[in-house]
């Protein structure tokens, strides 16, 4: 295996962006990530992005993002219709195959112009589920009830995840869900879709994020403390919700095992959990005990740029290594209803 590291990361200040379009949000982010990487833009060997046409309401909307790249002379470029964490996976594989020594990975999306709860329904089975329009919050609420009734967690546990995430988000310029409310205050509020309250759900965010990867000696040359990708793996559970034990995440557990998590706990874990209940499910699947710092960025509950929030987890985990806060960090990204698909990326310092 080739050694591959995250050498830079940039993101926009997530918020609702009525004025700027995707390219306008993306361009400074890409420029910042490329400049911070120390690799001249024209020497980056591969570019891969993650975004969703359904968010833009337009076919091949990702093509316009090329405007943000400076793609002349021509570049080698690809795209996934998934969170950009999966674009990073493709770029990592490209580097493993020896087809590039460096890669620019980015994700972007604007959720605020549409109804994101309805838009995400379009990823469901088109015959049995999508025609009923079960929105993301309603499905996550079914999952949360399975968790609560299993006795593994209480509504107070969920509110504690929310309160901690909002506190941490307040210190993160990339996040925007900031709220000093305590757990009792949060629990006094109404349900959105019972048993979930608004604080249990990720905010609606527009934005973009970008990461630069580099292999071996190039990474060492441009970066004092590269965040090496020691393992990365993606696993999928069946689509039918009734087939899954929704209170657990076997695909996350398996992805972590294949990524090489082993018995040494990471110091930091950035988990892509758009719902408080999902963070608790992921922590259990990854056997993270209280000693692991979970989502110091505020996580997806602090900012949830759909199609970039997973990549942001990898970027934040890598930053904790590059800045010396951790020597081993775990990043996780999810896709599909109720944590159907999960990707785990394990990062380490030298």
């Amino acid at each position: 295996m080739r050694e591959v590291a995250v050498v830079s990361f940039a993101q926009s200040a997530a918020r609702r962006e009525p004025a700027r379009n995707e390219v306008e949000i993306l361009m400074p982010v890409v420029t910042q990530a490329v400049e911070a990487s120390g690799i001249p833009r024209h020497e980056i060997g591969f570019t891969c992005s993650g975004s969703c046409d359904y968010l833009a309401g337009q076919a091949f909307s990702f093509v316009s993002a090329v405007d943000a790249l400076g793609a002349w002379p021509p570049i080698v470029e690809s795209h996934v219709e998934m969170d950009a964490a999966w674009a990073l996976y493709e770029a990592w594989a490209k580097i493993q195959c020896g087809m590039a020594d460096s890669a620019l990975v980015f994700g972007f999306g604007k959720s605020s112009p549409g109804e994101i709860r309805d838009v995400l329904t379009l990823q469901l089975d088109p015959y049995y589920l999508a025609p009923l329009w079960p929105d993301t919050v309603s499905l996550a609420a079914i999952q949360a009830r399975v968790l609560l009734e299993s006795g593994k967690a209480s509504e107070r546990d969920l509110a504690e995840v929310a309160a901690r995430s909002r506190r941490d988000a307040a210190a993160n310029p990339g996040a925007h869900q900031r709220d000093p409310s305590g757990v009792d205050e949060l629990l006094a509020r109404d349900y959105l879709v019972s048993p979930l309250r608004v604080h249990d759900c990720a905010p609606i965010s527009d934005g973009a994020a970008a990461v630069v990867l580099a292999a071996g000696d190039l990474a060492r040359k441009v970066c004092d403390r590269p965040a090496w990708i020691r393992g990365i793996d993606h696993r999928i559970e069946p689509h039918a919700l009734g087939l899954r034990d929704l209170a657990t995440s076997p695909s996350t557990r398996l992805a972590a095992e294949k990524a090489g998590l082993g018995s040494v706990p990471p110091e930091v874990a950035e988990l892509h959990a758009p719902f408080t209940s999902q963070e608790l499910i992921l922590r259990e699947a990854l056997s993270l005990d209280a000693g692991v710092r979970v989502n110091p960025s505020g996580g997806a509950l602090g900012a949830n740029v759909v199609m970039a929030a997973g990549l942001v987890r990898i970027g934040e985990a890598a930053r904790s290594i590059r800045e010396g806060e951790a020597s081993r960090a775990l990043a996780h990204a999810t896709s599909g209803p109720c944590l159907q698909q999960n990707l785990v990326c394990l990062l380490e310092a030298d």
Binding site: R117, W133, S138, A141, D190, L241, L246
Partner: peptide, 26 residues
Amino acid sequence: VVSWSWVQVPREKHPLDRPFAWALIR
């Protein structure tokens, strides 16, 4: 009913226009 959630304010596209439950039903 195996598990369920309660929608107090139905969305426009939801199958019912009054408060209702989504449920996994065996």
